[in-house]
Amino acid sequence: NRLEFTLSADGKQIKAELSNTTTVMEFILLGFSDIPNLQWILFGIFLLIYLTILMCNSIIILITRIDPALQTPMYFFLSNFSFLEICYVTVTIPRMLMDLCMQKRNISLFACATQMYFVLMLGGTECLLLTVMAYDRYVAICHPLHYCLLMNHRVCTKLVAGSWISGIPVIIVHTYQIFSLPFCGSNRINHFFCDLPPILKLACGNTFVTEIAVYVVAVVFLMIPFLLILVYYGKIICNIMKLSSVRGRTKAFSTCSSHLIVVVLFYGTATITYLQPKPHQADGMGKLISLFYTIFIPTLNPIIYTLRNKDIMM
């Protein structure tokens, strides 16, 4: 929106333009404001879920560190995965709990960018760590005689460090690119955290290049790791089917089933969200999917891993 006017000075026309475009300096997270009667009920539910996630994952980390029988690569990766889940939910749930308590839901551009960075970075780390855990199961089942050599402590440490570090520079550049876009319209985010699709919806101008970048990053951190996991599990299943013992096949499948369930749940919902940077689905559906992979799956993960794992249950 621009305001034009002319002035006359010494017989000459002077034309001037003033712009009344306002640049967005902060956002408002609408969260669950559309159901005001349930604010305190939701606060209690999400607080209980958050405390449950913290407690269960902390117990897994503690057990895998102090029990000598669990000093193996599989449980080393599991403890790192549990720590990752704690970090992942801590980025979103505390802010959501605060918004449920307070009427003012303002969040600055910097705080919003920081939250999005950590959500994307930790999500990318989870994709890579799930791939590493699939590789560990592949080596254990398909190359059992070389397992100790291929998956020694040094290799495991490098794989975990690579999972945590490799996405950092990419996500920094990606987040900077998104928040370099002009936001000059509405500042109301119909979501409970600064997620990528609802932020892109508020951007002004042409976002084509940014959307292409979103697809590229999604392919690198979602599809490529997922394809690797499929390859590993394809080889695992072929190897298991060659076993003559029914008991041996059952035991081999049981060591992989927990991880496979987590992979399907996480990748299914994350793919729907991030391979559609400007989804045509309703905002409520996008919120529900995000709620599932950011909160409910981290709640289920400790249950899935512990109930199906005799070593931890003992």
Results as ranks from 00 to 15, higher is better:
Arg2Tyr: 11
Leu3Ile: 12
Glu17Phe: 03
Ser19Pro: 01
Asn20Tyr: 06
Thr23Val: 04
Val24Asn: 08
Leu29Ser: 06
Phe32Tyr: 14
Asp34Glu: 15
Pro36Ile: 09
Gln39Lys: 11
Ile41Thr: 15
Leu48Lys: 12
Ile53Asp: 04
Leu62Arg: 10
Thr72Ser: 08
Met74Leu: 03
Phe77Leu: 02
Phe81Met: 05
Leu84Ser: 07
Ile86Tyr: 11
Tyr88Gly: 09
Gln103Asp: 15
Ser108Ile: 05
Leu109Thr: 15
Phe110Leu: 09
Ala111Val: 00
Gln115Ser: 08
Gln115Met: 12
Tyr117Glu: 11
Gly123Arg: 00
Glu126Leu: 01
Leu129Asp: 14
Tyr138Gly: 04
Ala140Gly: 03
Cys142Leu: 03
Pro144Leu: 01
Cys148Asp: 14
Met151Gln: 06
His153Glu: 15
Val160Glu: 15
Gly162Asp: 10
Trp164Cys: 03
Ile165Cys: 13
Ile172Gly: 02
Tyr176Trp: 14
Gln177Pro: 01
Leu181Tyr: 01
Pro197Glu: 03
Pro198Met: 07
Leu202Ile: 13
Cys204Leu: 00
Cys204Gly: 07
Gly205Leu: 07
Phe208Gly: 00
Ile212Gln: 10
Tyr215Lys: 07
Val217Ser: 05
Ile224Asn: 00
Pro225Asp: 12
Phe226Lys: 02
Leu227Gly: 07
Leu227Glu: 11
Ile240Met: 06
Val246Trp: 06
Gly248Met: 10
Thr250Lys: 07
Thr250Tyr: 09
Ser254Arg: 11
Cys256Met: 09
Val264Gln: 03
Ile272Tyr: 01
Leu275Ser: 07
Leu275Ala: 04
Gln276Asn: 14
Gln276His: 13
Gln276Pro: 00
Gln276Val: 06
Gln281Val: 15
Asp283Ile: 00
Gly284Trp: 08
Lys287Asp: 10
Ile289Lys: 06
Ile295Trp: 01
Phe296Ser: 07
Phe296Ile: 15
Thr299Asp: 08
Asn301Asp: 15
Ile304Leu: 04
Lys310Gly: 02
